Amino acid sequence: MVHYPEINALVEKYQQYGLVVLGFPCNNFGLQEPGADASEILNGLKFVRPGNGFEPKFRLTQKIDVNGDKEHPIYTYLKRNCESPKDMFYNSTDLFYSPLRSRDIRWNFESFLISKDGYPIYRYSDDTLPLNLKSTIEALLKL
């Protein structure tokens, strides 16, 4: 799982310039976030995936829904301002929410870049590796 270490690398490089990363644990996709609370989620990261003592250098929120009838308002806002980067859904038997909507988050690690004033600027698919965002982050931070 390369996303977590790459997110930490971005935080280490750009936090001093104002980059803030928030992680929103979610169980909507393949039930991949079974942790019931912050302690269980952090232990899962540290000892299971990615494991090897990993500790996030970014803020994690409580577990939320990012899609469906129970979606958190932050995701309603983000998705309203940025269309989905993918047209197709993954296998719907691995999606644990309803209803399905065209702007839904398609899978874990889909990400948004948000301006300093809180406006969503870019939305990236789950297969975009965090380090591939460096040039865009640098442009937004005016580095």
Rank of each mutant, 00 (worst) to 15 (best):
140 L>I: 02
106 R>V: 06
124 Y>R: 00
62 Q>L: 06
61 T>M: 01
37 D>H: 08
71 E>G: 03
117 D>V: 08
140 L>E: 14
42 L>D: 09
99 P>N: 12
32 Q>A: 13
132 N>I: 04
105 I>R: 00
52 N>Y: 12
39 S>F: 02
31 L>P: 00
92 S>R: 11
134 K>H: 02
71 E>M: 14
114 I>M: 06
66 V>C: 04
130 P>W: 08
50 P>M: 13
140 L>S: 03
17 Y>Q: 14
71 E>T: 03
53 G>C: 09
105 I>G: 03
11 V>M: 05
67 N>I: 05
10 L>R: 04
3 H>P: 03
140 L>W: 02
32 Q>V: 14
20 V>D: 07
36 A>D: 08
53 G>R: 06
119 Y>I: 14
139 A>F: 01
87 D>F: 05
1 M>A: 13
107 W>F: 10
128 T>E: 04
90 Y>W: 05
88 M>D: 15
42 L>G: 03
80 R>A: 15
89 F>I: 03
39 S>Q: 12
89 F>K: 01
114 I>W: 00
34 P>I: 09
8 N>D: 07
143 L>P: 01
20 V>G: 00
91 N>D: 15
114 I>V: 15
47 F>A: 09
41 I>N: 02
127 D>N: 11
75 Y>L: 06
119 Y>L: 10
5 P>T: 14
32 Q>R: 09
84 S>D: 10
107 W>M: 11
121 I>Q: 08
89 F>T: 03
141 L>D: 04
19 L>G: 04
27 N>S: 11
117 D>N: 15
102 S>R: 10
